[in-house]
Each structure stands twice: as C-alpha cells, then as structure tokens.
C-alpha cells in the first residue's frame, strides 16, 4: 500500500518509463559526439576500433582553432556584460514603472526569441553593407546583442517581479538616495538573476551560429570555424573532439546558470 501521493498524483508506471526514454532520447544523440571523439578511427562509424585521445591532443597544434576560440570568448564576454546591464535596467523599468504601451514594448523586446535568426542576420547584413561598415567581430557582437537581449530580460524579469518594491521604499525612507538604494538593496536581491543572465547570454553568444554566419568578417568565431571544418569528412574526428569540449563547457555553464537563476523562485 502506498503511503504517499493522492489518487491523482499516485505513481504511474508507464509515464515513468516514458520519462526515462524521453531523457535518454534527448541526451543520447548528443552523447555520440564524445563517444566517437575517443574512437581510434578516421571514420565516424561502428564498430568502435579503439580508445585514443589523439584527436584531443591534435587540437593543441591548431592555431586557427585557438584564434577562433579567443574570438568567441571575447564576443561572448562583451555581449553578456552589455546584455545583462541592459537587461537589469530594462527589467527594473518594466516591473517598477507604469508606462503606456509597456506590453507592446515587452513583446517587441522578446521578438528575437521567436523570429528566425536568418531574418535578423540578413537584415543587419543589408544595413551594415549599405552603411559601409566592414564586417568584423564588432558586427557579430551587435548581432549577438539582438539575440541575447530577450534571454537576459526573460531571466531577470521574474527576479524583479518577485521583488517587493516596499523594500526599496523602506531604504529610501531610511535616507538612502536612489543609487545607494539600488546598490545596497535592489542589486543584492536580484544578484542570482544577474549571474544566471551573464552565464546564459555568454553561452548563447559563444554557441551562436546563424548571426555569425552572415556577419563575420575575416575573424571567425568558434562555431564558424567548426562549420568550415564540416566540409571535410577527414576532419570529423577533430571536430568531434572540439565539439565534446564545447558541449561539456556549455552544459556546465548553463546548468549553473539555470540552477542559480531558479534558486529561490520555486514556490514550495
């Protein structure tokens, strides 16, 4: 006799099995990448021929790869910081002030979340080329700002929504000025959201492809470098090794971001 859960929520064996299969199917395709990255064969196919780490050590000597990695880190760092600052200001304004047309504004802000990236990519490309701006990491960064901003705002909004404005008022009442109140009261309260937003937008920028595809000049980002390598099947094992490292780093970063971001938001 079970002594937990009401009739509605009592354990359902078929659903449990389904959930397990779902997670397996969700993760296994991705796990083939690290699996074959350790396979001692130029061909990405079964049966596995032997264990090797040579595809990883081979990465060390690839100068262009390291340049691309450095480019991606630069763009990601700058984009995540700018996005998060803008996101904090926007989220605070959205939650604190009564503004006419606010919901339309928020919808507009969230558009890049849904609209295919290719449209933003070509639109920016057209603008930049007509304005005579040469394509560079800066143009990639601009594209990434557009893509990442909605995620920053979406991560930060719930933090500000759960924030009791009377606390700011209490601080103001105790004689603190606006900036001081922000630093001493508001910022610590939304800090987890800020960290989550930084990590998340960095990862998104780091992994972003389609904007970079249209807006990259001579300095490729890491995904662009990988895209270039995908044309050569003999490069597959190296790409697999590279991808494994990127996936691992992304998973860790996003997991931390999600964990921090949701901390304290769950109602229990």
């Amino acid at each position: 006799m079970s002594d937990r859960g009401t009739y509605i929520e009592r354990p359902n064996r078929p659903l449990q099995v389904y959930a397990a299969i779902f997670l397996i199917v969700l993760y296994v395709p991705i796990l083939f990448i690290p699996l074959f990255s350790f396979n001692d064969s130029i061909y990405v196919s079964f049966p596995l021929t032997g264990f090797t780490t040579k595809w990883y050590s081979e990465l060390w000597s690839r100068e262009p790869l390291w340049n691309a990695l450095w480019n991606s880190v630069k763009v990601g760092a700058v984009v995540s910081v700018i996005c998060t600052i803008l996101g904090v200001i926007a989220a605070r304004a959205i939650t604190r002030y009564r503004m006419p047309g606010k919901s339309a504004l928020v919808t507009f802000l969230m558009m890049p979340l849904v609209i295919p990236g290719i449209i933003f990519g070509v639109a920016l490309l057209v603008l930049l080329s007509r304005a005579g701006v040469p394509l560079s990491l800066y143009t990639v960064g601009l594209g990434h700002l557009i893509v990442c901003l909605p995620f920053a705002v979406a991560t930060l909004l719930p933090r500000f929504e759960g924030f009791d404005p009377s606390m700011e008022e209490a601080s103001a009442d105790l004689g603190e000025n606006g900036w001081f109140t922000f630093w001493r009261v508001t910022f610590p309260m939304v800090f987890p959201g800020v960290v989550a937003s930084l990590l998340l937008t960095f990862t998104i920028s780091f992994d972003e492809f389609i904007m970079a595809f249209f807006l990259t000049g001579t300095d490729p980002t890491l995904p662009m470098y990988i895209w270039g390598q995908l044309r050569f099947p003999q490069q597959f094992p190296s790409v697999l090794a590279m991808s494994s490292l990127i996936l691992f780093a992304s998973f860790v970063l996003v997991f931390i971001a999600q964990w921090i971001g949701r901390m304290g938001l769950e109602k229990k």
Partner: peptide, 23 residues
C-alpha cells in the same frame, strides 16, 4: 533543468550530432 539543458547548448553541434547518427 535536465529537460531544458540541451536547448541552451550549441544548436550547430546538436544538428551535427544527427549528421553523425543518420549519415
């Protein structure tokens, strides 16, 4: 988090994974 985690990681690499599988 476990269910949504893959979504945030590289789209390009997830598609590449299917190329590896279906090739």
């Amino acid at each position: 988090i476990l269910m949504t985690l893959p979504f945030w990681t590289s789209y390009l690499l997830r598609v590449f994974a299917w190329k590896v599988i279906l090739g």
